[in-house]
Amino acid sequence: PDLGLTQLFADPNLIENLKKNPKTSEMMKDPQLVAKLIGYKQNPQAIGQDLFTDPRLMTIMATLMGVDL
């Protein structure tokens, strides 16, 4: 199971919303991170391994779920 990750990354406004959010806007200036996020739309399971190697993803996930870290 993808634990709902498919829906989190399926939002067509995902990148724009993250660019507008004060907690994630600075991160979204990294083209490699943006490319990763776009890739998760097609393969949400890929985030599982990346969560352990890129701490920014935890902040992004929390933001998408509405959790304040």
Score class of each variant (00 low, 15 high):
P1H: 12
P1T: 15
P1G: 14
P1Y: 01
P1D: 10
D2N: 15
D2E: 15
D2S: 12
L3F: 14
L3V: 12
L3G: 13
L3H: 14
L3R: 11
L3C: 10
L3D: 06
L3P: 09
L3T: 15
G4L: 14
G4P: 15
L5Y: 12
L5F: 14
L5K: 06
L5M: 11
L5Q: 07
L5D: 06
L5W: 14
L5C: 10
T6Q: 13
T6I: 13
T6Y: 09
T6N: 12
T6P: 08
T6M: 13
Q7Y: 06
Q7T: 13
Q7R: 07
L8H: 08
L8R: 03
L8I: 13
F9V: 03
F9L: 13
F9M: 08
A10E: 12
A10P: 02
A10T: 12
A10H: 13
A10W: 09
A10I: 06
D11W: 02
D11G: 06
P12K: 05
P12F: 03
P12N: 08
P12T: 06
P12M: 05
N13V: 04
N13R: 08
N13Q: 14
N13S: 10
N13D: 12
L14C: 06
L14T: 09
L14A: 06
L14I: 09
L14F: 10
L14Q: 03
L14R: 01
I15Q: 02
I15V: 09
I15C: 05
I15D: 00
I15W: 04
I15R: 01
E16G: 06
E16Y: 07
N17G: 11
N17T: 14
N17S: 15
L18Q: 00
L18P: 00
K19E: 14
K19F: 14
K19D: 03
K19V: 10
K19Y: 06
K20H: 10
K20V: 09
K20T: 13
K20I: 08
K20E: 08
N21V: 02
N21M: 03
N21C: 04
N21Y: 06
N21T: 02
N21R: 03
P22H: 07
P22N: 08
P22W: 04
P22C: 05
P22I: 06
K23C: 05
K23E: 07
K23S: 12
K23T: 08
K23Q: 15
T24C: 04
T24D: 00
T24M: 04
T24I: 06
T24P: 00
T24G: 01
T24A: 03
S25C: 08
S25W: 05
S25N: 15
S25A: 14
S25M: 12
S25F: 07
E26Y: 04
E26A: 08
E26H: 07
E26W: 03
M27S: 03
M27N: 01
M28P: 00
M28T: 02
M28H: 00
M28W: 01
M28K: 00
M28L: 08
K29I: 03
K29R: 14
K29C: 04
K29P: 00
K29S: 10
K29T: 12
D30N: 04
D30F: 01
D30E: 03
D30C: 02
P31D: 10
P31I: 07
P31Y: 05
P31Q: 11
P31T: 12
P31M: 07
P31G: 07
P31H: 08
Q32W: 11
Q32V: 13
Q32A: 14
Q32F: 14
L33F: 11
L33Q: 01
L33M: 03
L33C: 02
L33I: 07
L33H: 00
L33Y: 02
V34C: 06
V34E: 06
V34Y: 04
V34Q: 06
V34G: 01
V34L: 09
V34S: 03
A35N: 08
A35Y: 06
A35P: 00
A35T: 11
A35M: 10
A35H: 10
K36S: 07
K36H: 05
K36F: 07
K36G: 02
K36N: 05
K36E: 04
K36C: 05
L37P: 00
L37W: 01
L37V: 06
I38Q: 12
I38K: 13
I38G: 06
I38S: 09
I38V: 08
I38T: 09
I38W: 04
G39E: 12
G39N: 11
G39D: 12
G39S: 15
G39F: 12
Y40W: 09
Y40C: 02
Y40P: 00
Y40D: 01
Y40R: 00
Y40V: 04
K41C: 08
K41Q: 13
K41H: 11
K41D: 03
Q42R: 13
Q42A: 13
Q42E: 15
N43G: 04
N43S: 08
N43M: 04
N43H: 09
P44K: 02
P44T: 09
P44A: 08
Q45N: 12
Q45M: 12
Q45R: 03
Q45K: 03
Q45E: 15
Q45T: 09
A46S: 10
A46W: 10
A46G: 07
A46H: 10
A46L: 13
A46R: 05
I47R: 01
I47T: 04
I47C: 04
G48Q: 15
G48M: 15
Q49P: 13
Q49K: 11
Q49H: 10
Q49V: 13
D50A: 06
D50G: 05
D50C: 04
D50M: 05
D50L: 05
D50R: 01
D50P: 03
D50Y: 03
L51V: 13
L51M: 15
L51F: 09
L51H: 04
L51R: 04
F52I: 14
F52L: 15
F52S: 14
F52E: 11
F52R: 15
T53R: 09
T53C: 05
T53N: 14
T53P: 02
T53M: 11
T53S: 12
T53Y: 06
D54W: 02
D54T: 01
D54P: 00
D54V: 01
D54Q: 01
D54S: 02
D54C: 02
P55V: 13
P55E: 11
P55M: 05
R56K: 06
R56N: 07
M58Y: 12
M58S: 11
M58C: 11
M58K: 11
M58P: 09
T59D: 04
T59Q: 10
T59E: 10
T59R: 05
I60L: 06
I60R: 00
I60H: 01
I60M: 03
I60P: 00
I60W: 02
M61D: 00
M61F: 12
M61L: 13
M61I: 15
M61A: 13
M61G: 03
M61H: 05
A62R: 06
A62G: 11
A62C: 10
A62T: 11
A62L: 10
A62P: 01
A62H: 05
T63H: 10
T63A: 13
T63K: 02
T63P: 01
T63I: 15
L64G: 02
L64N: 02
L64S: 02
M65Y: 07
G66S: 10
G66A: 08
G66C: 08
V67E: 14
V67F: 13
V67S: 12
V67R: 00
V67C: 10
V67T: 11
D68L: 03
D68I: 03
D68R: 01
D68W: 01
L69V: 11
L69D: 15
L69K: 02
L69W: 02
